[in-house]
Design a protein around this nucleic acid. Structure first.
Lengths: 191, 191, 191, 191
DNA sequence: TATGAATGAGTCTTCATTCAT
DNA sequence: CATGAATGAAGACTCATTCAT
């Protein structure tokens, strides 16, 4: 039923918001029920447990990330330009979906996500890893484990995002350019 | 009483370990009492609440970090060399104090730490910020907000630390050098 | 509708099995619905409540017992022989309908069965009670309240059945003969 | 602390009564707390779970049974007389401790009791089993598995107890004598 | 009649904190 | 100061039953 999927989505969206605002442990299912406008039991009609619900949120978030990451990716660009596109995709996606970013940060080292789901979620990173491998092969990037390299890139963008979200500093186009350039300089091939 | 301070320290050390092993929410005060070998009430003689205890742990951890960061820092080195020393200090401190690293990661975005304590904790970063400001002034580093730059550096080292702690990849001296070099290349002054 | 009675029977049979396997309290109506292949609401078209359904099962089980008890009962036998036939009928019925036996044991002291239904169910014991009364009158059996005597006989057969169902002891023909003989010796008329 | 054991006992006694009156599943821990005059958490200070509490009740009940069973057992009696003493001990114990009897009946086939505890509980039957083995060896009792024989004896006494507890029939001394005689006749050695 | 999503009171259990000793 | 039994509010989850479709 169409209504069914909507109800499920409503619950997920509401939980996502609450988890980001309050943390998983500070979000009781009773509150979720109230704010989603359903009975407590209804949640359990759609998700067998709180843990399962969080896992669904995780998979959802990774999938959305994966879809957003490689857009605007055309071959008629230099590797450096493509790198910038990917980096901006990541940044833009999370700026547009702050809630996903904050959720990801919170869930990233959580033991609540099952090993299997974590594996599934990380499949969405594949296109990036392949792009980096290609870069190394083309001698555009320095030789390094692509997982480590991906971490370095992500952590730089993440740092920018945190500053964007905090009120300390406005992330102007210029600053973003600096961060991306800094990231590129950190991994590019040196003669 | 000397015994008194020891008791306090024992409780803190035990809590630090438990929090890292299990998470804050999965560490009941009753377990802390048992593993620290004291009665539940005793903990409350030393700390008015669980939250306060966590805040003490936070301040402690930041202070230790601050103390470790600028050791081996002699003036008879180039700026680049000093940068490497600082980066290695951070890395080494957390390798030697994994528990502090994991605690920091867990607590970093937690709402349990009061705004005031967070401010106090971050004072320990001052020497680094000043070192970076100097670098910009000396045209060793590119012009950038030092808070952002510090984030970039820390996030790179953190990425290395996570790989070190995970079993995926062994953090050889070479890989660490690569990370530090990558970090330096990302922020150094370009003509 | 014929289909209707079948549906009702399917639900009852399924519930009987589940109750014996898991206990009444551990058998949710939702599980019954799933395993019987009907919707939850459908069950409530046939039975106003779980309690009512259990009561129907009880009456059913007692009726089946009553029908089985006096088969093969021909007058051209001695009283002792007829006693053995009845005892074997009880034993055989429950060996063939283990599920009924286990259900009876579980339900026997339950407060779920209404007083009225319990009375109705026990009407099925009448033929046995009459047979025992006849035995006393004929000086084949010692003088005793027939309800007490029926309990003694049943409890002996029940003991045999439990041993048969457990894996401790195989109920050979010989052991069964011993139990029936023991039961008879316990109630037969003494000079 | 003395108070401690009392509190524990109070909770156990209260639970025993409630379980017998209402059944295990119909006795919520919240009701136990209220009727025992303690907070819900207090119960869990003494027993890790409802299941554990029930297991304790079981062990307690079996132990009390075991202690009561062989009293007044002097060697200057015939085997038949000793048999009567044991049978009366069982009957008297349960008449004096109706609550234990009803609890035993309810718990006897329950899956809540752990295998280990069931084994421990049944150790209390040992003196009876040994007494029966002796009887067989002395050719006082017919040859039969002692476990089966014990079941037969117990089930007869149990039948008497149920009639005693029900309002159908008053268990006079004469009727009890009949039951015991009936039981004896059922197992005694036949030439 | 059949369906099955929705309900919400009720269940067991946890745990930060208190306080009499 | 130390103890640890006691508290009770709050949490995750269950399930008999209803009712709109």
């Amino acid at each position: 039923m169409n209504n069914d999927r909507n109800r499920r989505r409503d619950i997920m969206n509401c939980m996502l918001r609450l988890v980001v605002e309050q943390g998983i442990q500070n979000t009781p299912m009773s509150q979720l029920a109230k704010e989603a406008g359903v009975a407590a039991g209804t949640i359990y009609h759609h998700f067998p447990s709180k843990e399962f619900l969080i896992n669904e949120l995780y998979l959802d978030s990774k999938e959305a990330f994966g879809k957003a990451i490689m857009v605007n990716f055309t071959q008629d660009k230099s590797y450096r330009e493509k790198f910038e596109i990917v980096a901006r995709n990541i940044y833009d996606f999370y700026v547009d979906h702050e809630i996903n970013f904050l959720f990801s940060e919170q869930i990233s080292r959580s033991t609540l996500i099952t090993a299997e789901n974590r594996r599934l979620g990380e499949l969405n990173y594949m296109p990036i890893l392949e792009f980096l491998e290609l870069g190394i092969k083309l001698k555009e990037l320095r030789s390094m484990e692509v997982e480590l390299m991906a971490q370095l890139i992500y952590s730089n963008i993440s740092a920018a995002l945190h500053l964007h979200l905090s009120d300390c500093l406005i992330m102007t186009e210029e600053r973003l350019k600096t961060v991306i350039a800094s990231s590129w300089d950190g991994i590019k091939y040196k003669l």
